[in-house]
Amino acid sequence: MGIREVSIVHSTHYKFDRRVAAGPHMIRLQPSQNSHAQILDYRMEITPKSFHAREQVGVFGNAITRLVFLEKIDFLSIIVSFKARLMAFNPFDFFLELHAEHFPFKYEKTQEESLGMYLHIYDQSEVQNWLSQQSLPSNGKTLDFVIGINKLVFNQFDYLLRFEHGVQSPSETIINNSGSCRDFTWLCINIFRAKGIAARFVSGYLVDLNFDDESKDMLVFHAWVEVFLPGAGWVGLDPTSGLLVSEAYIPLCSVPHFKDAAPIIGNTEECKVEMSYESSVVRHF
């Protein structure tokens, strides 16, 4: 498809029932450097203006904007806008190290030590029990095994557009036989880890362009998986679609645990709050 350029706007608004003191807020809405999209003219507009902002790099290498408010506020508005050049790439354009071409494989000692947090399993017994009942890819090739696990989650579970906060545990998704993108991602991560493959949680934007009807173009806040394969590095997979990640995925945050991937986190005095958000994508080709 070559290069496609789009403009993206993502707005989040909080309205409080009175003026309240607000603690520090951490914002993770800046596209990652490992995005396959070229990011242009990135801007973040925050109101009200009574704050100090500091750009930071978090412990997992993600860009964070830290806000410290100087006075009480009765609303908070965060508007992110940028242009993205979506440059088509071949997701299979990599070579695995010889020792990792066939599954199972072992990481070299230094890699295994560095990847420790990405190998920790949650709900291990439930995940292992579910795996024991599945027909897993068995031709011995690591890439086929990884793709097969991704497709297995896609095929076995029903997708739900879930508006509740939080992420289901792997056992909840297995019991419910359904979940949202973030639930599938967390389950898939723990399946990979149960099989000795380091995996991490990625949150970001999915640019969904409808080439039959431009009015149906969408910008979706999404979650997907990345696995670490020796020789290839971090490889993205989307268990919600059963496919490998393409140039349409723009990562914002990559972490071992979903709790560290929230796009906006902070606190205020106790109050009532109304939250709303909008997103849009406009193509330039």
Rank of each mutant, 00 (worst) to 15 (best):
Ile149Ala: 06
Asn150Tyr: 00
Asn150Phe: 02
Asn150Ala: 03
Val153Thr: 12
Val153Phe: 01
Val153Gln: 03
Phe154Asn: 11
Gln156Ile: 00
Asp158Gly: 04
Tyr159Ala: 05
Tyr159Glu: 02
Tyr159Thr: 08
Tyr159Asn: 05
Leu160His: 12
Leu161His: 12
Arg162Tyr: 09
Arg162Ile: 13
Arg162Cys: 05
Phe163Lys: 15
Phe163Ile: 10
His165Glu: 15
His165Leu: 07
Gly166Trp: 07
Gly166His: 11
Val167Leu: 10
Gln168Asp: 13
Ser169Thr: 15
Pro170Ala: 03
Ser171Tyr: 04
Glu172Ala: 15
Thr173Leu: 15
Ile174Asn: 12
Ile175Ser: 15
Asn176His: 14
Asn176Trp: 08
Asn177Gln: 15
Asn177Phe: 04
Ser178Ala: 15
Ser178Leu: 12
Ser178Met: 14
Gly179Phe: 01
Ser180Cys: 10
Ser180Leu: 02
Asp183Glu: 06
Phe184Gln: 09
Phe184Arg: 13
Trp186Leu: 05
Leu187Arg: 08
Leu187Ser: 10
Cys188His: 01
Cys188Asp: 07
Cys188Ile: 00
Ile189His: 02
Phe192Thr: 03
Ala194Trp: 00
Gly196Asp: 05
Phe201Ile: 14
Phe201Asp: 14
Val202His: 02
Val202Pro: 06
Ser203Met: 04
Ser203Val: 08
Ser203Asn: 03
Ser203Thr: 13
Gly204Asn: 06
Leu206Val: 05
Leu206Glu: 02
Leu206Ser: 09
Val207Leu: 05
Asp208Val: 08
Asp208Glu: 11
Asp208Thr: 02
Leu209Gly: 01
Leu209Val: 06
Leu209Glu: 00
Asn210Gly: 10
Asn210Ala: 04
Asn210Trp: 00
Asn210Arg: 09
Asp213Val: 09
Ser215Glu: 15
Ser215Trp: 02
Lys216Ser: 07
Asp217Phe: 01
Asp217Glu: 12
Asp217Gly: 08
Asp217Thr: 03
Met218Val: 07
Val220Phe: 00
Phe221Met: 09
Ala223Glu: 11
Ala223Pro: 08
Trp224Pro: 07
Trp224His: 11
Trp224Gln: 05
Val225Pro: 13
Glu226Gly: 04
Val227Lys: 04
Phe228His: 12
Leu229Arg: 07
Pro230Lys: 06
Pro230Phe: 00
Pro230Cys: 06
Gly231Tyr: 14
Ala232Phe: 11
Ala232Gly: 14
Gly233Arg: 06
Gly233His: 10
Val235Gly: 10
Val235Glu: 07
Gly236Glu: 13
Asp238Glu: 13
Pro239Asn: 03
Pro239Tyr: 06
Thr240Phe: 01
Thr240Trp: 00
Thr240Asn: 10
Gly242Asn: 00
